Computed example of a mutant assay.
Amino acid sequence: MPKHRRSLLCKFEIEREVKSEVISPETTYAAYLVFKLPQDQSTFEAPIQVEDYNADYGSKEPFIYLVSPPHTPVIGPKLDENTYNPLNRYNGNALPQQRMDGWMEVKIWEFQTTTESVPMHLYFEHPCYKDLKGLMVHGIELRPI
């Protein structure tokens, strides 16, 4: 596969405008990526980098997980002592959750509304340039927080 073609498979972007007439003014919203992964999820274990081209309008996590990161035990002073502490786990908002409808979701963006429309332009890229083939994106869901 040519190098330029391979690099296109490791990234995608979402560019939309959140219309002021479909959201409540002066409200903080969270945007969730709704998706499904293929059977082989190994490509999706690394965090996906997210860049916000309209950073003035919202905030986002610098990366998201499409698969929950594994719990890494901490080896204690004695070789056979496992001192895993759940407080050392990643505690950001960018962890995926299973939905009741069978899809997964992960929070990707947060924004405050005014009386005007809000532009959303998010760029997602695998940090190791791995192929994201098989990722099914259903859409973006907005919810007040």
Rank of each mutant, 00 (worst) to 15 (best):
K133M: 04
R5S: 13
L79Y: 08
P73F: 09
N82C: 15
W103N: 13
S68H: 12
N54K: 14
F124Y: 15
A55W: 02
P70C: 03
P73M: 10
Y32N: 06
S59N: 12
P119T: 07
I145E: 09
E17R: 10
G139A: 05
R143V: 14
K3I: 15
L95K: 15
L132I: 04
S59T: 14
K36E: 13
P70T: 11
R6P: 00
V106S: 04
V50W: 06
N54H: 12
I14C: 07
Q112P: 00
S20C: 14
Y129E: 13
V22D: 05
R143I: 11
D131Q: 10
H121W: 14
A46T: 07
I23N: 00
Y123R: 08
G102A: 07
Y65R: 06
Q98S: 12
E17I: 14
E110Q: 15
P73L: 08
G102H: 05
Q97L: 11
A46E: 14
E45C: 10
P2M: 09
G139F: 04
E13W: 10
P96F: 03
V67T: 09
Q112D: 12
D101T: 06
E141H: 12
P86Y: 08
S42N: 06
H71E: 14
T113W: 00
V137F: 03
N85H: 05
D80I: 04
T27K: 03
F12P: 08
D56Y: 07
E125L: 05
E51S: 11
P77I: 04
R16D: 14
D40C: 00
I23E: 00
A31N: 03
K36R: 14
V22K: 10
K78M: 07
S20H: 15
F111T: 04
T83N: 12
E21L: 12
M100N: 12
I145Q: 10
T115Q: 11
K133D: 13
P86M: 07
R5Y: 13
M1Q: 11
P69V: 09
S20V: 11
H71K: 13
V118I: 15
Y129W: 08
K78H: 06
T113I: 01
P119L: 05
L132P: 04
G102S: 05
P38I: 04
E15Y: 02
